[in-house]
Design a protein around this nucleic acid. Sequence first.
DNA 1: AATGAATGTTAATGACTTGTTAATCCAGTC
DNA 2: GACTGGATTAACAAGTCATTAACATTCATT
Lengths: 225, 225
Amino acid sequence: MTKILLVEDDPALGFVIKDNLTIRGFAVSLCKDGEEGYEAFSKGKFDLCILDVMLPRKDGFTLASQIREKDTRVPVLFLTAKSMAEDRIAGFRAGGDDYIVKPFSMEELMLRMEVFLRRSQPTSTEETLRIGHYVFDCRNLVLLHPSGPRTLTHKEAEVLKLLCTHRDRVLKREEILKSIWGDDDYFMGRSLDVFISKLRKYLKSDPAIEIVNYHGVGFRLQTQP
Amino acid sequence: MTKILLVEDDPALGFVIKDNLTIRGFAVSLCKDGEEGYEAFSKGKFDLCILDVMLPRKDGFTLASQIREKDTRVPVLFLTAKSMAEDRIAGFRAGGDDYIVKPFSMEELMLRMEVFLRRSQPTSTEETLRIGHYVFDCRNLVLLHPSGPRTLTHKEAEVLKLLCTHRDRVLKREEILKSIWGDDDYFMGRSLDVFISKLRKYLKSDPAIEIVNYHGVGFRLQTQP
DNA sequence: AATGAATGTTAATGACTTGTTAATCCAGTC
DNA sequence: GACTGGATTAACAAGTCATTAACATTCATT
């Protein structure tokens, strides 16, 4: 049984999340402020923490770093309001923890949790890909990001998946064309470029992610600046 | 499973590196100071160590030499701040270990790790060439150096690769032209010289590396003084 | 030193590749 | 048979890069 520590002061939101997670088979401990969260964490063993950032009696970031002192491995996921300063958020991105901007869908929360939980116990066959701070659900063609989810078309997804499974490597234009459009007739149109252009648009919320063109060669999904 | 010992006191950076390496299939032990790093190394068996230089309770260099006492083969890679005195860095270059100047890209770290790991277990058909303190990734056309990465064009890469695979040997001008521009019609322009000029610019951060001209004959990539 | 050839370097050129938007096509579907 | 969503093409703007041009410098031989 996977145990979740949820610290959220807004009772409405807290119960919604707790119920949803419980239905999906998680054991959830709900705390309503930072101090209470810290006590709960000290006593129990948790597989994942979900912390609101704005909390009475001890904010989420402070709580997170105290949790880190006790356990360097446990994944911590923040819930933040949209009004939060971008640079503060950027800081936490860099720190490696994930965060979700309110309002969010349960689907999004679940996907992000899955990523974290899989990291600690690497088991199942991949169905979701991480691309920077995006999460791409290949199966449902959904690309998730705090700024909102987006459903991709079939071909968009194929191109993204191919780039993603070869991330940080240059894929020759011809390799991509062969892989997606088949090799019998060589494809002369500009379709690929149009898809690249679209994907760039979809991925532009994370500045660390870039599809780089190697002139005369091909493309590369760059995940490191 | 390749095991990595990572000693880094800055939690933000430590977790980023750890996560990135974990995603790429390495088993990472993260320690937050020199003493802890030493204990971890004494207990476990590691294939590679990544040490920050500035560490609480025992600096990276001291830790490295203690590690060397126990294991003369394990590769050690340093992370250093840019502010570090150049001569100190030079000393460690001479000692044979590699180092990476912060801030660095994960791509750079990965490539340098690959070089070390290949040295101990020569396996894959990787297409990276070492040129002094540069690392040249032929496939992605990326030339890495602590002062920063640079993407080469197709032809630049061809010339560099040719020089590099014949390093310390004089390549006749005609040999190069034939090899890269084809031999049917002899090439009369000055393109080759322009590329040599560019490559010299790219390689000038390492004074030990030089493209030498043998007047009337050809060029030589000199890696030994 | 004088000479002409070879090389070093920078900037300009022009062919080609890529980015992007809008229009068009096309296959399902109602 | 019109509608709809998505793939493809058209068309043009923008960018990249190998090559050339032009001029400076070095070299080998006298």
